[in-house]
């Protein structure tokens, strides 16, 4: 009786509050702490407590230290090229797999594998295969008469190596999402188009693409937000090198904060990073808001 007599109003909060409180304590509070720390200088190896320095850290990253801009530049380029590449490859594959044939499910299952693997395992397996001298990929290239590629040791090549592995890992995500979106489209449209003599390419460009355009934008945003957090591939494949050619924002924050223990600077750069991601996140959330009701 005691439980049943709790009003509707209290019940809904009793259900919701544990999660809300947990997120307040473990997500919002720490973010507030990051904000406070970002206005301080705290080299934790040698300083017992933080010292207030106002906006110095922000000034440092925005105007004095090119490494932040370098990391932002690399990360943006990587996000742009990988997400576009994954989208194009995903569209092609989804188009091909929307044909019905024996063994179709086999391919769908195979393509699930890369995105389920721990990213750090993916990174180290590729590092092993891409080793400049004894990696299997270069030895195969040499054995068929091509020259070895400096996958991870050339400043110009290394960023594209990271992009290539990302495309390996996440094209299947785009492809499976797109395939699911294709299959939710009404079949009558295609039957009508078939009666009118349209071929499958025409159907694809005139019916499928326009109808799934909103889905394409949504999944690209989801992918872009996750891609921006790039850490494991950099950690495992190149270690941000050569030089800082493949240093991502996450990796740079990790180095400042956890290698050098410059907690104030690390906090401020991670907030700059947060602001950049926020632009993408707000776009995505406003899309979710429009699509869903309830």
């Amino acid at each position: 009786m005691a439980v049943a007599s709790i009003g509707r109003k209290n019940v809904k909060w009793a259900f919701l509050l544990p999660a809300l409180i947990y997120l307040m304590l473990m997500a919002i509070l720490p973010l507030g702490w990051t904000l406070t720390l970002s206005f301080t200088k705290w080299h934790a190896n040698i300083m017992p407590s933080p010292k207030w320095v106002g906006l110095d850290n922000y000034k440092y990253f925005l105007f004095e230290n090119p490494r932040f801009w370098n990391a932002l530049g690399f990360t943006s380029m990587y996000v742009g090229i990988s997400v576009t590449g994954e989208l194009i490859l995903g569209l092609i594959l989804a188009f091909l797999l929307s044909h019905k044939f024996k063994g179709r499910n086999f391919f769908r299952v195979i393509y699930l594998i890369p995105m389920a693997c721990p990213p750090i395992a993916v990174a180290f397996l590729w590092r092993m295969m891409l080793h400049p001298d004894i990696g299997v990929i270069n030895t195969i290239l040499k054995s068929i008469g091509l020259s070895a590629v400096k996958w991870t040791t050339s400043v110009n090549m290394a960023p594209f190596t990271i992009i290539m592995v990302d495309i390996w890992e996440w094209t299947p995500f785009m492809f499976l999402a797109l395939l699911a979106a294709f299959q939710s489209l009404p079949i009558e449209l295609y039957q009508a188009a078939a009666v009118d003599g349209a071929n499958s390419w025409q159907m694809f460009t005139h019916i499928t693409l326009p109808l799934i355009a909103p889905v394409i934008v949504t999944i690209s945003l989801i992918r872009a937000i996750d891609a921006f957090k790039l850490f494991e591939l950099v950690f495992g494949i190149t270690g941000a090198g050569p030089g800082s050619a493949t240093e991502s924002l996450s990796f740079y924050v990790y180095v400042i904060g956890m290698k050098w223990f410059k907690l104030g600077r690390g906090s401020s750069i991670s907030l700059l990073f947060l602001i950049i991601l926020l632009i993408f996140a707000i776009t995505l959330i406003s899309r979710f808001k429009k699509v869903r009701t309830g």
Binding site: R8, V11, K12, F15, L16, A19, L20, L23, A27, L29, P30, L31, W33, T34, L37, I225, F228, K229, F231, L249, S250, V253, Y254, G257, M258, L263, G266, S267, S270, L271, F273, L274, L277, L278, F280, A281, L284, I285, F288, K289, R292, T293, G294
Partner: peptide
């Protein structure tokens, strides 16, 4: 299942979801 009035259900849900989007390194130091 329940209706929230002051903050709409959707706003609460989207606020919760938005927590998934910020970069993990932003809370790493705290």
């Amino acid at each position: 299942r329940y209706e929230f009035r002051k903050w709409k259900n959707k706003d609460i849900a989207l606020w919760i979801l938005s927590n998934r989007m910020f970069p993990p390194v932003a809370v790493m130091i705290p």
